[in-house]
Design a protein around this nucleic acid. Structure first.
Lengths: 214, 214, 214, 214
DNA sequence: AATGAATGAGCGTTCATTCAT
DNA sequence: GATGAATGAACGCTCATTCAT
């Protein structure tokens, strides 16, 4: 079917593909809006198709199920977040740990801010909905955890990071501190003007130096 | 008739009350087990009553609905956790911040370990299930957040805590670091031997001094 | 059991019987009140026992089921109504038809007025609840119908009643006219002062002479 | 997209609408049959969908609930009955009262005969099922009552109706006599050949002249 | 005799998914 | 490809009835 279409009407096929992608995106967008307004469980497929203005059956042409939509949304957010972390170099010749961390945190906060509705849903209810969603989230946080451990180990080797640190537990702590600020200020305080710079600085200072005065 | 019944039934009433409490506890326990195995949403009341070995209707003698059971479980865990934090003094004459924090963290980790299945469910899926559950959790984390902010402010006044700290954001960071360690090691690594002392020390060292070497 | 009790403790048995009868009557009364307030279907046995202030199980000591209570109530009302009709003589030497009919109608209206709550329930919802209730009501109306037919036949024989009358259909008409007045004024107009004499007169005049002027 | 669909789908939409109406009617018919066989309360939605040969969910595409079906049936019967009464003129220049009444009664009896199963259910159990049903029935009987009162008053003014008549009570009597004949012969004697003309004549003669010989 | 906790069949309803058009 | 009517399994919940105490 594919090859035949390609041979016969390349332009038409291209156009159709574009329309398909548009439709898919439109449904996805409607789903974000609806999930964000009503919550995942309170959202029925009826709600999504109504919001998207498409027929029930159309939904199933683009997505297998409600959890498939959610997975697609998750993938989108995770891809954005990953893109902002992956770029950071943890090698020996790289920038100092503080500057690096500040950079990462800033990017993560900005991404979450941009995709606020999405981040909101995923922070609020992403766990326990679906085994596949759980796995992806675990994998994502796992990779972040590994990344942080590596960075800490490198730091220890370079002497910048305290050698007595439990890198495993500390990586969790760093991750948790960022997540909590996000959850606290992005999700729960919906109206609040979120000052990325302030929070990024606070997180980094806290992570680098702890709370004690010198 | 009444007085006679009252006199006579006193023993019977007491006994009945005890049996009632036992039954309730039994259903609750079965609910924890089932929630923990299948997840909240995947658990039907049919599953709970089957696990408890009672009739469907019996369930409704003790609980209004599925979400009522969950609320009861949440209350139980929160009460335990609160009991372990409330005792800590943050006044000026109190023990040094590090010792206090270590104490709290140790207790929280132990409680979560004791009520592992419960903590597991609540960490994994407590948000977005039910408005009342959400409120209670928000209130709980809110009170922890306020407690931490107070402690930090006090520390700043006493000079132990860095004066440049953003106490609001930092309180979130501390909270997040503890939550994440719990989630990471209690929930996701079910089999693992959890070394309370090691993690408590790591969390406290991290929070007090950050990751940087001096 | 009976004889032994009688021999041994006549007074005690008597007393117990009296208490039993009282309890039964009390439950019955509570049931009338509850049925009348909420309607038969909306009334649960829980409602009745609560209104009566007895335990659930106690109810079943006196009545088999909800419909049994209703049957008992029906029997009570029918017995009252029957007592007021049965006494009337339709023989040749009796009082003139008009006077007899007036007497019956007056008694029926009064009985319904006295047992208003009961009449209300039975008029409003007695049909279709239960096969046995239906049968009793059919039997009651059937006996009224037969009674009216006999009276009309006698009247025809005595020359007081028009010979061309369809006694079967006319008996239904008479019955219906009385029922409708009862339903209209007793049930639907709850507050209204019900003037028995006025309605009795109107019913009788209508039944004897129709609506046409002479 | 829209306009194209509209143009294209016009025929399809029409057809779909027709099919919808058919289905609805089919379910309605099955409901009449089932209600009539088992009674309203003894009929579950499971019974109706089984009788109609449709899925449980399909029922809810056409009706909100069991009582909605009943309301639809009631509306149907009442519309038929109303159509047969509304046409009758009660003005001064109209036909004599007897002829008019005969006409109405004949029509009412015929309608009830045509919609026998429906009339059966509604006569037997329409009251006390549902507040909305009750209201509609009360409204219907109320309008009949008012209609009869007007006719009687007109008759009194024209001298045809006895001036001493209590028009209110008598209107109830007339209504009741017709209802009772219907209930007696249509509902309770299911098998019987119902002679409309005979009963219409009997009802009218009774109502006009009463039972007394002149 | 009285109790009320326990029972479980049955209910109305929802909603993700399918499929004929 | 798009539609939306149809599906039916599964759900939470009610309540008349039973029975051990």
């Amino acid at each position: 079917m594919e090859s035949k279409a390609e041979v016969k009407a390349d332009g038409r096929t291209e156009r159709a593909t574009a329309i398909r992608a548009e439709r898919r995106a439109h449904i996805l967008e409607s789903a974000i809006r609806t999930f964000s307004e009503k919550g995942y469980h309170q959202t029925s497929i009826a709600d999504i198709v109504e919001a998207a203005g498409v027929a029930r059956g159309t939904f199933y042409l683009y997505f297998e199920s409600k959890s498939t939509v959610f997975l697609a949304l998750l993938d989108e957010l995770l891809a954005h977040l990953r893109a902002n972390v992956v770029g950071v170099e943890v090698g020996p010749g790289a920038a100092p740990l503080g500057a690096q961390l500040l950079d990462i945190v800033r990017r993560v906060l900005r991404t979450a801010l941009e995709k606020r509705a999405l981040a909101d849903i995923i922070f609020r209810e992403a766990i326990g909905l679906d085994e596949e969603v759980d796995q992806k989230l675990r994998a994502f946080y796992g990779s972040l955890h590994r990344f942080l451990m590596e960075a800490l180990l490198m730091g220890q080797q370079g002497g910048a990071v305290r050698g007595t640190l439990d890198v495993d537990a500390t990586a969790s702590c760093i991750l948790g501190s960022i997540k909590q600020v996000l959850e606290q200020y992005l999700v729960h305080t919906a109206e609040r003007d979120f000052d990325v710079e302030r929070f990024a600085q606070a997180i980094v200072q806290y992570n680098l130096n702890g709370v004690l005065a010198r």
